[in-house]
C-alpha cells in the first residue's frame, strides 16, 4: 500500500518537475489520438452509409395472379423460416397499385380508364446479410406460384465490390495510423526517459530493483496517455458533432446516421490506445537504461 502511494507520488512529482517533457508527450498523444479519432469517426460513418446502401439490396418475388391467400400465407411462413431472411413483406396487388399511384400522383391521367389492376402481388424480402441475395433468390426460381424473382443482381454486385474496397482501404489506413501513433508517442517517451538516464543509473546503483524504478515511469506514461487521449476525445466529439450537423444540412438525400459511433465506443478505443501506448512505451523505453 505504502509502495503504491510512493510510486504515484514519484510519478506525479516527476511529471511536475519535467513539465516541458510532460506537455510535449501529452501534445503528441493528443495529436495522434485526435487524428486517429477523426479517421475512426469518418470510417464508422462511411461504413454506416455503406450498410445503408447495402440494405437497399432486397429481393422482390413477384407472384402469379392465380395465387390463393392460403398459398401466400404458406409461402410467407416458408420465407420467414429461412435463416438468411431478416424480414419479409407481402405486397398485395391493390397495395402495389396504391403505391404506384402515390409515386405518380402528379400524373393521375395515367390511371384513367384502367380497367384491371396490371400489377402483380409480391414479397419484398430483406436479408440479414445482403451479400446472400443471389443464393436466396435462386430458391424461388421455378416455384409454381412465382412469376419472377428480382434482386438487382448487377447493381448489388457493383455495390458490394465498391463497399468492400472502401472498407479495406479504411482498415489499412487505420492500421497505418495506429502504427505511426505508436512510433511517435513511444519516441517522445524515449526522449524523456533518455533525459533522465543518469537518474535511472543512480537508482540502480543504490539498490533499486528494475520494477521499483519502472512503476513510476509506467504510471507517468499512463497519465500522459490518458490526459492526451481525453483531450483528443473531447475535441473529436465536439468537432464531429459540428461537422456532421453541416453535412446533414448539406446532403439531405444521404441518410447519415445520427450516431454511427457512440462517444462511449470512441472513448474506449482512444483512451485504451492512449493509455496502453503511454504505459507500455514508458516501460519498454526504460529497458536500455536498466542494465546497470
Amino acid at each position: 500500500m505504502g509502495k503504491i502511494r510512493f510510486f504515484f507520488g514519484e510519478a506525479l512529482r516527476s511529471l511536475w518537475r519535467n513539465y516541458f517533457m510532460t506537455v510535449a508527450a501529452m501534445v503528441t498523444v493528443f495529436l495522434s489520438m485526435f487524428v486517429l479519432g477523426v479517421v475512426l469517426v469518418f470510417v464508422y460513418n462511411i461504413n454506416a452509409v455503406l450498410k445503408d446502401v447495402e440494405q437497399k439490396v432486397e429481393i422482390t418475388v413477384y407472384l402469379k395472379d392465380s395465387v390463393t391467400s392460403t398459398e401466400v400465407e404458406a409461402l410467407q411462413k416458408q420465407i420467414l423460416a429461412m435463416p438468411e431472411v431478416k424480414d419479409s413483406q407481402f405486397v398485395s396487388k391493390d397495395e402495389a397499385l396504391k403505391r404506384l399511384k402515390e409515386d405518380l400522383k402528379d400524373h393521375p391521367e395515367l390511371f384513367e380508364g384502367l380497367a384491371k389492376n396490371p400489377l402483380p402481388a409480391s414479397f419484398e424480402i430483406s436479408l440479414k446479410d445482403p451479400q446472400q441475395a443471389s443464393v436466396v433468390a435462386a430458391r424461388f426460381n421455378g416455384k409454381p406460384m412465382v412469376e419472377e424473382v428480382r434482386y438487382g443482381k448487377e447493381l448489388a454486385e457493383r455495390i458490394f465490390r465498391v463497399t468492400s474496397v472502401i472498407r479495406n482501404i479504411s482498415l489499412v489506413f487505420i492500421i497505418l495510423l495506429g502504427g505511426v501513433s505508436i512510433l511517435l508517442i513511444s519516441n517522445t517517451i524515449r526522449l524523456s526517459i533518455y533525459a533522465r538516464r543518469r537518474e535511472v543509473e543512480i537508482m540502480k546503483l543504490v539498490g533499486a530493483t528494475n520494477w521499483f524504478i519502472r512503476w513510476p515511469f509506467i504510471i507517468e506514461g499512463l497519465a500522459v496517455g490518458l490526459v492526451g487521449a481525453v483531450l483528443a476525445l473531447i475535441f473529436v466529439t465536439l468537432g464531429t458533432n459540428f461537422v456532421m450537423d453541416r453535412i446533414r444540412g448539406a446532403l439531405m438525400f444521404l441518410t447519415v446516421p445520427a450516431s454511427a459511433v457512440s462517444v462511449a465506443q470512441l472513448a474506449v478505443i482512444l483512451l485504451g490506445v492512449g493509455a496502453l501506448i503511454g504505459a507500455v512505451g514508458s516501460g519498454l523505453g526504460l529497458r536500455r537504461f536498466l542494465n546497470v
Binding site: G2, K3, F6, M203, V206, G207, A208, T209, F212
Partner: peptide, 11 residues
C-alpha cells in the same frame, strides 16, 4: 530516504 525506500522501508 530513497536508499531506505528501495528496500521497502518508508515508515
Amino acid at each position: 530516504l530513497y536508499a531506505l525506500q528501495v528496500t521497502g522501508n518508508d515508515s
